[in-house]
Simulated scan of single mutants.
Amino acid sequence: MPLVPTSSVVEAAREARIGAAAFNIIHLETAEALVTAAERTGAPLILQISENCIRYHGGLLPLTRAALALAEGSTARIAVHLDHLTDAELVRQGIAAGVGSVMVDASALPYEENVATTAELTAWCHERGAYVEAELGEVGGKDGVHAPGVRTKPDEALAFVRATRVDALAVAVGSSHAMHERTAVLDKDLIAALRSTLPVPLVLHGSSGVPDDELRRAIAAGMTKINISTHLVSVFTGSIRRTLEAHPSLVDSRKYVKPAREAVAEEAARLLGVLTTPATVADRLAARASAQG
């Protein structure tokens, strides 16, 4: 199937009030597992490659080309997205390689510089038909705006979107990067307020720390793109640990990576079900009542 634009996955999810699943890959095996999950469930999926992952592989092209090849060869609707790019050159390389969307991450810069950098790169990407996500400040786990108690203000978010013309915005509503326990409680009132204020889809970073029911409530309140990385990495690593503990003499990495790949495929398929099942009427009414106080 031809590569699917990220914009079509996100906009369709926003209209249907379901989640657009965006799962990070760290190597070929996790990419294969996630594509398998999408094929098993029939749900669309955004494969994400972070700047940290690009650095790990020594450059953008090796894993990016592999992800694009998997997407194009899959029977599922797969998009490929570059996540948390702080280097403008990587943005340009990614678009040239065929990636349809990027997250421009200038969040560590002072606000005015963030706006200027994001606006410039967004204009460049739009000229080439690419979709752009951004955020106002750093995400938790990086001593940033998603640290406990910090929240995105709707009026500031609207000003940022208007100034930069980005297509989607990552917002701070109570999640944090790199959480190993799924205990986060999100601010559903704020999500609803942001949804009603902003003309672009909302993106939840740090979703690994958010339990299933809380993710459903967040989507019902107005969240759209749901990024998950650490949780699936933990599933992969946990499987490898169990296999090697049970079979300490194994030396062929395929013998322990294969079950880990399957474990990720199973959990990713389960999460796709959580994110893409429409919220019940009760969920929506509860979210609306909460937003109205």
Rank of each mutant, 00 (worst) to 15 (best):
M1Q: 11
V9Q: 14
E11H: 13
A12E: 08
A12Q: 05
R17I: 00
A22I: 00
F23E: 03
L28T: 03
L28D: 13
T30K: 13
E32P: 03
A33E: 02
L34S: 07
G42C: 01
C53R: 13
G59I: 04
L60H: 14
T64C: 15
A67K: 13
L68K: 10
L70W: 12
E72P: 07
T75Q: 15
A76D: 04
R77E: 11
R77K: 15
V91G: 10
I95W: 03
A96C: 00
A97D: 00
D105V: 01
D105M: 01
E113N: 09
V115Y: 14
T118V: 11
E120T: 13
E120V: 04
E120Y: 06
A123M: 06
W124Y: 15
C125H: 09
H126R: 15
G129K: 13
L136G: 02
K142G: 03
D143A: 10
H146L: 08
H146M: 09
V150R: 12
T152Y: 08
A159P: 06
V161Q: 04
R165D: 08
V166L: 13
V171D: 05
S175K: 11
A178H: 08
H180M: 10
E181S: 15
R182G: 04
T183F: 08
T183V: 11
K188F: 15
R195P: 07
S196H: 15
P201W: 03
V203I: 14
S207V: 02
D213N: 09
E214F: 06
R217L: 08
I219L: 09
M223F: 07
T224V: 05
T224I: 01
I226M: 14
S229C: 10
L232A: 08
S239D: 08
I240S: 11
I240E: 14
T243N: 00
L244N: 09
A246M: 03
A246Q: 11
P248L: 06
K255T: 04
P259W: 04
P259F: 02
E262R: 05
A263K: 06
V264W: 00
E266W: 00
R270M: 04
L275W: 10
A279T: 03
R284V: 09
R284E: 15
A287Y: 12
A287C: 08
Q292I: 02
